[in-house]
Amino acid sequence: MFLDTDYLGLRLRNPLVASAGPISQTVSGVQSLADGGVGAVVLYSLFEEQLTQAAERDAFLEEAYADSFAEATSYFPARDTADAGVAASYLSLVERSAAAIDVPLIASLNGSSLGSWVHFARSLQDAGAAAIECNIYFVPGDLTLSGAVVEQRHVDIVSAVKQAVSIPVAVKLSPHFSSIGHLASRLVEAGADGLVMFNRFLQPDVTIEPIAVVPGVTLSHRVDSLVPRTWIAALRNHLNASLAATSGVEDYTDVVRYLLAGADVVMTTSSLVRHGAGYSAKLLDGLQAWMTRTGHDSVDGFRGMLAVPTDAESNAYQRAGYVAALEKAKSIYGSLV
């Protein structure tokens, strides 16, 4: 039985990938994910703000009193400027984790603007990352900002990161665009080797006693897989890029559904957080059992069976977007969901 999979040009032993999450904050955590059997590990996300703010804060603390007294010109030993707080810690984690596991390690950068953090991708490559996942988490709060500008920002970031590295780059996207297919095409044109669909935006919640706004941090549920699976099915045969599905994996059936829709790999964090890093073995066992039952001896053999075919009418997309595409697909292959 062949589970091996191509993702971003990397050959993975299977299509299950541990997505960016809390388990990968330590080398031992990354090792436990790899030991669980996943095909690749995406490291937890390093945030643009962490890079810039931590570096700025430490630089400020280091230099705040320099040359302020006659008796001393500084109060800390000189250090390499590369030792920039969380950046160095993250690089070290990449380096040690990549050396510790036998599957590809994908570093994750979370940002929303062009800046020095983009060039940090090169350092991640040098530290041993097999690929970079750009998590472009942008929430436009400016009412004068047009959608075109937002999309251009995404394209510019991808272009900049691609110029900085020679390893593959995936882009983790928001589902909230006017025309996801169009944007996806532009990102691929800008150099994206793959798209990760989709980022879950953690909107704040509200408590009524006491009355307060609280961070909305929740694990995903199966229902969260509907949107990404639909779009993966719609884009599978129209983009020359890898597609990763993420969100809503509860058991192996969700892995199978995503693969049928056309995902190259299926990512999960929530199920591993819920059940432990070793749960990936159960997901893979379930996948293989299903393949045996349904007579598939390779993942490649059934991947994309329920994707929208290449020759689907483009008018359908223009008229009613992906819903119409789904209707078309449904008329051919039956329900996708």
């Binding site: 430490d58 280091e62 950046a87 160095a88």
Partner: peptide
């Protein structure tokens, strides 16, 4: 404290 963080940054191990 930066005096401890500096080592965490430069040599985490």
């Amino acid at each position: 404290e930066l005096r401890f963080r500096m080592l965490m940054n430069s040599d985490p191990e």
